[in-house]
Design a protein around this nucleic acid. Structure first.
Length: 775
DNA sequence: CAGTGAGCGAGCTTCCGCTTGACTT
């Protein structure tokens, strides 16, 4: 017999809460939402006041049945879903589906999982807030309308199976807009000048003092002129200013800040972070990991204080209450923090340990004192010239929270590390050792990483903690975006150096624009974004979500009817959808680049069946058009005539070897040499497919043959075909009729007989087959 | 795996947010 049935969203939460409540309480979990709009035919009756057709999802049928059974027996049902829009809706759906009797149902909320908070909640029940539920319904229905009306437009106009939505389309737009800024960016250079002086410190030892000029010269001539003037100049200290400065700790983690910090400090992807955090949560090590709140419970604040006082002393503790800065935060939970502060480390995988430690340190640091510095700025006069050199040094006076945690930055700072300056006095003359003027280039705005895109989305109030990771993977799955590295290019820069009254000039090399694990929009991503911005400007607006959120808030406050809001949105929106479908236009991104020098035919870049490509001539010409695929890094939008013509140079013949033709081309897996029906990969970063010689190609062929010799362990003839025992990446395997088979463990592959191989082939499932099935 | 890019047409694709497993490799 169940006396009191409490229903929460998460099973891990249910387990914890059950401990806090007496035996008369049974706690179950709904596993999030239990029903959703029907998937067929929109799931909304638009003409009938947007009447939603809700269906219990297949994977929730079992849990709903179990809940029903327990509800029947219970004297009182407590709906304890989260205290936000979605949580309120979950409570309402539960009440509807379980047909709860109003007299036997209470709605309770708590945003921290402590005994006190829960008992308090039980003492203060309320009813379901229907206005808040309506706000959720409006949100849900609007998202369905946008997603299920826009996506089919793309299927018709661009390509099947594409998708669009309030959140994902704007996320892609952020990347596309940034990419355009990068394309338009023209780097400029200026000369940064640094002087090294020799100073005697208080022990009589010679030390070096580095100072930067307060002026950057935009031409080499000006920098040279300055250095020459310096060769005759006197230097002296003009001023020494010492000021105290401080740094404060950051707020405890939310989902988004945890994702950013784990990405920067531990190199985790956004989804990796969430999977690891989920494990820690389920093991009871940390509080809930999908939250937008920076709030810590009273119990947590007290525990932090105790640990800090004990470990470091009172002077290191500083009680801080943080306030959220993000738009649309709903704060149904606490910040992400350790469940117990006496555990500095946890058992588990290396990744779990690292992430836990990050959370532990960040939480404690957030309750610690400011770090105090003394910042000294020294200004150095150049006699007779209107410029100054400036040196800054910092001395740490009190480490405070830095004892625990140092937050990282996206931008690597060049000269921000702590420097201690030697003692210096005003008017003190200085000996210059050397002065260097180095050419520095401006950088394009940075491309987004997964984590920095999440930060931007949060800033715009787009998406929720539970959806950041899925958004990132959706836009990659749809191939609007790829996460990849890119090799930089090389460039020269000038270094001018004055030493011993002599100016020398040097040219040095640097790589620039190299990228690591960055998000790049694809041609499809660019095309779809342009199309949507053209036809659905308001939905693609960065403020669209923020604007509809205002309406949802009004609905939640009972000031607006949800059906009215949807009406006002849908009528003009649907008109645009119909117009978009009705207009005939070119949406394959066709771009005329120029004309072929030989045939005079037009060269067009466009999206083809297999992705972005260029073609010479039209398909209705007498002669078939020639096609070539774009290379990584090339865009329909920016490819030049020269680059396009270059693509048509391949495949080309290099000559012959052993009486067979040798040719070079670029395939799906990069540049290759083709010889006697066999392919040989070019070496990345060494060989250039456009300029490779026959001699080098032959070298590659022979290299590969040498390698392959070691690949074959044994081979047998079987049913007019060959069974091969091969050495692969993951150890030995059997290959027969182009299919691969696993060799059982603890088998010596070199001693396998033909009979044993046949046996394995007949019994064992081919690994190549399963792969194909998955696709 | 190292090519492909025509055209027709049936049947399918798709959203955002709230939760975990149940599946592979």
């Amino acid at each position: 017999m169940v006396e009191n049935l409490v229903i929460v969203e998460s099973p891990a939460k249910a387990k914890t809460i059950e401990k806090f409540l007496g035996k008369s309480f049974t706690v179950m979990s709904s596993f999030g939402h239990i029903r959703d709009l029907a998937k067929k035919n929109l799931g909304i009756d638009i003409k009938n006041n947007f009447n939603p057709d809700y269906v219990v999802s297949d994977d929730k049928k079992k849990i709903v049945a179990e809940l029903k059974k327990n509800v029947k027996e219970a004297k009182m049902v407590w709906l304890a879903s989260d205290e936000d829009r979605e949580g309120e809706a979950i409570a309402w759906h539960l009440a509807e589906v379980l047909q709860l009797d109003e007299k036997k149902t209470k709605r309770i909320v708590f945003n921290e999982i402590t005994k006190e908070a829960i008992q308090n909640a039980i003492k203060n029940p309320r009813n379901i807030d229907k206005n808040l539920v309506d706000a959720q319904q409006a949100r849900r229905i609007l998202d369905r309308l946008v997603g299920f009306e826009l996506s089919p437009v793309l299927w018709k106009k661009v390509k099947p199976s594409l998708s669009a939505g309030r959140v994902q389309s704007v996320a892609v737009r952020l990347l596309v807009d940034r990419e355009r800024e990068i394309i338009a960016f023209k780097p400029s250079s200026s000369y940064k000048t640094v002087a090294v002086f020799e100073v005697v410190d208080n022990k009589g030892k010679k030390v070096l003092l580095e100072a930067e000029l307060d002026e950057k010269f935009n031409t080499k001539a000006k920098a040279l002129e300055f250095l020459k003037a310096c060769s005759k100049a006197q230097f002296s200290i003009e001023d020494v200013v010492t000021k105290p400065s401080k740094r404060s700790p950051s707020a405890p983690f939310t989902t988004s800040t945890l994702q950013q910090e784990a990405s920067r400090k531990l190199g985790f992807s956004v989804s990796q972070t969430m999977t690891i955090a989920q494990k820690l949560y389920e093991a009871g090590k940390i509080t809930y990991m999908r939250t937008d709140s920076v709030n810590l419970s009273e119990t947590a604040l007290k525990a932090c204080k105790e640990v800090i006082n004990k470990e470091f002393g009172n002077e290191y503790h500083n009680l801080r209450q943080y306030k959220t800065k993000s738009k649309g935060a709903q704060e149904a939970h606490e910040a992400i923090r350790p469940a117990y502060f006496d555990q500095e480390t946890v058992q588990g995988s290396a990744a779990e340990k690292k992430l836990y430690s990050l959370i532990y340190k960040r939480t404690l640091a957030s309750q610690m004192s400011d770090a105090l510095f003394e910042r000294t700025t020294v200004s150095i006069k150049v006699e007779g010239l209107p410029y100054h050199f400036v040196a800054t040094g910092e001395v740490l006076k009190f480490d405070g929270f830095l004892k625990m945690y140092i937050e990282s930055n996206d931008e690597e700072s060049e000269s921000d590390n702590l420097k201690i300056l030697p003692p210096l006095t005003k008017n003190q003359p200085l000996n210059v050792k050397n002065i260097t003027s180095t050419e520095r280039f401006t950088h394009h705005p940075p491309r987004y990483t997964e984590a920095s895109l999440v930060r931007k989305l949060e800033e715009l109030g787009i998406g929720r903690p539970s959806t950041y990771a899925p958004i990132i993977s959706t836009i990659q799955q749809r191939e609007y975006v790829v996460k990849t590295d890119r090799d930089g290019s090389e460039r020269n820069f000038d270094v001018l150096k004055l030493e011993n009254k002599n100016v020398t000039e040097l040219t040095e090399k640097e790589t620039f624009n190299a990228e690591k694990a960055k998000l790049f929009p694809t041609d499809i991503g660019i095309l779809v974004t342009d199309y949507l911005v053209d036809h659905f400007k308001d939905i693609m607006d960065y403020n669209f979500t923020a604007n509809v959120e205002k309406d949802f808030d009004e609905i939640a406050e009972g000031k607006m009817l949800w059906t009215k809001m949807l009406d006002a949105f849908y009528a003009p929106f649907h008109k645009k959808v119909e117009m978009a479908i009705a207009t005939r236009e070119n949406t394959k991104g066709d771009r005329l680049i120029g004309n072929d020098l030989v045939s005079g035919k037009p060269i067009i870049a466009r999206i083809g069946r297999f992705g972005p490509m260029v073609q010479i001539g039209q398909s209705d010409d007498e002669e078939k058009p020639r096609y070539a695929k774009l290379q990584p890094g090339q865009y329909i939008e920016t490819i030049t005539l020269e680059q396009a013509l270059n693509l048509f140079q391949l495949p080309k013949k290099l000559g012959s070897y052993e009486n067979y033709e040798v040719s070079v081309g670029i395939g799906r897996f990069g540049p290759y040499i083709l010889h006697h029906a066999k392919y040989y990969s070019l070496v990345k970063g060494v060989d250039d497919p456009y300029n490779i010689t026959l001699q080098r190609a032959i070298e590659l062929i022979n290299d590969k043959r040498e390698k392959d010799k070691n690949k074959v362990i044994n081979s047998f003839e079987y049913q007019k075909s060959e069974i091969q025992v091969l050495n692969g990446r993951f150890g030995p395997y059997i290959c027969y009729n182009k299919e691969n088979y696993k060799i059982p463990k603890n088998t010596d592959a070199t001693k396998l007989t033909a009979e044993q191989c046949i046996d394995i082939i007949q019994k064992g499932a081919s690994t190549t087959k399963t792969k194909k099935k998955r696709k």
